[in-house]
Simulated scan of single mutants.
Amino acid sequence: MLKIGITGGIGTGKTIVTRIFALLGVPVYDSDARAKWVMHHDAILRQELIAAYGPDAFTAQGDLNRPYLASIVFNNPERLAALNAIVHPRVRADFEVWTALHTNKPYILKEAALMYESDAWKQMDEIITVFAPMEVRMKRLQQRDAHRSEEEIKAIIEKQLSEDEKMKRAQHIIYNDEQTLLIPQVLELHTYFISKV
């Protein structure tokens, strides 16, 4: 079974691409959604977060206090790195358990915006980068994340590895630029991955 990573900056359209793969029967591990799940359900991780950030890391209802954690780490690279050092190993372990449930499939996808920053690429056989030009990304993000200012969106983009660097490191690029058809690109890769098994 192949492990295929799929990445791309915020607003490039990773979600729509992974949905197309999912319609083809490919299991997709959504790193962001799973990280949230793990932070809520992994007892070891909960203890580590409380030890590092205090009881306010979780609300009175027991939910992860995302605004509180974001306020601590967003503009502090050292604190963000410390948070990632706590969370990423637990998510990697969760991915291994999830992968074991899908060994009957020719390949699986792991979607992660921070594929390289989290070292998740080291678990993958090949990487797909979803690319969209900056003006297309900004338009999508202003529609999707209307609560965020343009400055906030740019700050998030600047914290991620550049698109040029992601494209250099990837074995495959899917262009989601509103000019190139997505489905044929996904079908071509789907056929390619199946042929490798």
Rank of each mutant, 00 (worst) to 15 (best):
A33M: 15
P133F: 07
L83Q: 03
P89E: 01
P67C: 07
I16A: 09
A70E: 06
W98H: 09
S71N: 14
A33T: 15
D119A: 13
Q47G: 09
S118R: 04
P106Q: 05
P55K: 13
V91Q: 00
I72F: 01
A70Y: 01
A57D: 01
T99L: 15
K14N: 03
L109I: 15
W37A: 14
P27H: 09
V73T: 04
G25F: 07
L109K: 00
D125A: 08
R19C: 07
G25Q: 09
L101W: 06
A35Q: 04
A113S: 06
T59S: 10
D30E: 15
R46W: 04
L23G: 12
F21S: 03
G62D: 11
A43D: 13
F95H: 08
V17F: 02
K110N: 07
I50N: 07
A57L: 03
R34D: 14
V73N: 02
H102Y: 12
D125G: 10
A33P: 12
P106N: 09
E78C: 00
A132T: 09
G13L: 00
R90G: 02
S118H: 03
A52M: 11
W121S: 12
L64P: 04
N104S: 08
E78L: 07
G62L: 07
L109F: 05
P55E: 14
D56E: 15
D30T: 14
D63A: 11
Y116T: 02
T99F: 14
I86S: 01
V38M: 07
F131M: 07
R46A: 01
T129F: 00
A112N: 05
M39F: 13
R66T: 05
W37M: 14
G8T: 03
L24F: 11
T103D: 07
K14W: 01
L69F: 05
